[in-house]
């Protein structure tokens, strides 16, 4: 589910590398592959990293898909094959059942706050990376 974000944003980053870069590289006798690895990807690197971070941000906040396939056991996982629950699915499962104004109710909101802060940091970081990158290419 993170794939579409990562693919389309990385593509944008690669596309915004000026054409003169790869023309110069090709003119020096490099193959297309060498141009891609040594010139285009380094030039677009921060954009690609930002795309990956945004994709991860989406994956962290994803609720329903995770809820349906992880099994939602509220226990410490011991391996990658254990059933777990995430921030988002905890809220989704429990909010419907807790009484209004109870400690549990507010606990779920603080789970939401932590989730929000995590995604906020990821988004801010990718935003700053992208912004810097745009300045450099200009």
């Amino acid at each position: 589910m993170a794939l579409p974000t990562i693919v389309s944003l990385s593509e944008d980053a690669l596309k915004s590398v000026p054409k003169s870069y790869d023309q110069a590289s090709l003119a020096l006798g490099a193959t297309h592959w060498q141009t891609l690895i040594r010139v285009k990807i380094p030039a677009a690197f921060s954009g690609i990293i930002a795309a990956c971070m945004l994709g991860m941000g989406r994956a962290i906040g994803e609720t329903m898909t995770v809820l349906m396939v992880t099994g939602c056991a509220p226990a410490m996982p011991h391996s990658f094959l254990d059933s777990i629950r995430t921030f988002a699915s905890t809220i989704a499962i429990e909010l419907g059942e807790v009484p209004y104004d109870s400690t549990h109710y507010y606990a779920l909101f603080s789970v939401g706050l932590v989730l929000f802060i995590i995604t906020f940091i990821i988004n801010m970081a990718s935003d700053i990376i992208l912004h810097k990158y745009q300045k450099i290419t200009k």
Binding site: L54, G57, R58, I60, G61, E62, T63, A88, I91, A92, L95, Y100, L108, F109, G112, L115, F116, T119, F120, I122, N123, M124, D127
Partner: peptide
């Protein structure tokens, strides 16, 4: 602009929580 871009990354369940507090209650 920054807040708009950040809003697009906020998890959907957080919108749900926000909606419960603001609109429902």
């Amino acid at each position: 602009r920054l807040s708009i871009r950040n809003l697009s990354g906020v998890p959907s369940i957080v919108y749900g929580l926000f909606g419960v507090v603001l609109f429902v209650q």
